[in-house]
Computed example of a mutant assay.
Amino acid sequence: MSKKPLVIVTRKLPDPIETRMAELFDVQLNLSDEPFTQDQMADAVRRADVLVPTVTDRIDTRILAQANPNLRLIANFGTGVDHIDLATARQRGITVTNTPGVLTEDTADMTMALLLAVPRRLSEGERVIRSGKWEGWSPTGMLGHRIWGKRLGIIGMGRIGQAVARRAKAFGLSIHYHNRRRIEVEMEAELEATYWESLDQMLARMDILSVNCPHTPATYHLLSDRRLRLVKPHAFIINTSRGEVIDENALVRLLQQGKIGGAGLDVFEHEPAVNPKLLELDNVVLLPHMGSATIEGRIDMGEKVLINIKTYVDGHTPPDRVIMDWGQDSLYS
């Protein structure tokens, strides 16, 4: 491109990233941070050379059908791309990039925080203190469950799953995993991890389950009502991936019936809406999709977006180009 490309950013990004974008490109920022309406998104794709959306934006066939011919790059601010119609983007010659790798440690930290908080009833205890109803220590007060020695089943043993495994191993958990393909023997040995080819068999034998696979058509409701009923009644489910991977209504029913011990959820099936029945349960910890919400992580994400755009503008293939590979043999990454 001989002139600076018009880059339209859909949400407020960290100040250092926005400053650098303004230096490099002809950029339209969203200083109010109000999510784009579908009409605003349509207007953006009609004008932009590069679109920088986030995971809260829905970029479907209807939106992409209105894109101007110069829109050739969607540089997503985030790792997940389930909100973008990748097939239509590819048909229209639009490259899609994301920001992989930089959120691994932050998300794994949040997974471990929930893994500790749910069995030990930390959220319940905090509410008791704030309510002013705590009457002091008691031998049987606020009893939770020890995690040391328990079996952890990780669903999706990619970068985040492996980072969770390293942390969990240090806390004395026995590591098990199910993945689209078995990881390297050396990594298995390092993590002391046991591979389960059958997800159903693993679900039935774990004390804690951590969902770390992406949301794709192949993983939608991967934890279905049938599969959730295989889980032990004392087991806990942690989800820092995507809400759509779990049948949320089925999870609520089983939690209400005492057929699942508890859950720690950082993501929800219909965000930002949260199932009101979840709010009524004491055995769940609910967080507002903040697994990757660190200052360092957000700046690192922005740096990746900048590199992807600059590389594209300079006529090269962006380093984080998304390759659509959603066959049945590629459930988890």
Rank of each mutant, 00 (worst) to 15 (best):
S330L: 14
P16S: 13
E18I: 11
D60F: 10
T19V: 13
D85R: 08
E303D: 08
R253K: 14
L31T: 01
G302E: 00
F77W: 09
A89E: 10
T61L: 13
M157V: 06
L287D: 05
I74N: 01
P119N: 10
T56M: 14
W326C: 09
F171I: 09
I307D: 07
I323Q: 12
V128S: 08
M301H: 07
I238Q: 00
R298C: 05
L306M: 03
R227D: 01
Y332K: 09
E190G: 06
G172Q: 04
G93E: 08
P14Y: 11
S224Q: 10
M324Q: 15
S138L: 15
A204R: 07
D39F: 13
T10K: 03
V245I: 05
S330C: 04
L223W: 08
D247M: 09
F77D: 04
G80R: 02
D82G: 03
V27G: 08
E280I: 14
D39W: 04
V128H: 08
L122Y: 05
R92A: 10
T79G: 01
G297F: 06
I246E: 01
S32R: 01
G315C: 04
Y312E: 02
L103C: 07
R127F: 07
N98K: 00
P53E: 09
R180H: 14
I63L: 06
I323S: 06
T216Y: 08
L209I: 03
H178T: 05
P139S: 03
R92D: 08
H145T: 15
T216N: 03
A273Y: 15
T294M: 00
L265W: 04
L255M: 03
D57K: 07
P139D: 02
V322E: 01
K150A: 11
D60L: 04
Q38V: 15
L71R: 04
V285K: 09
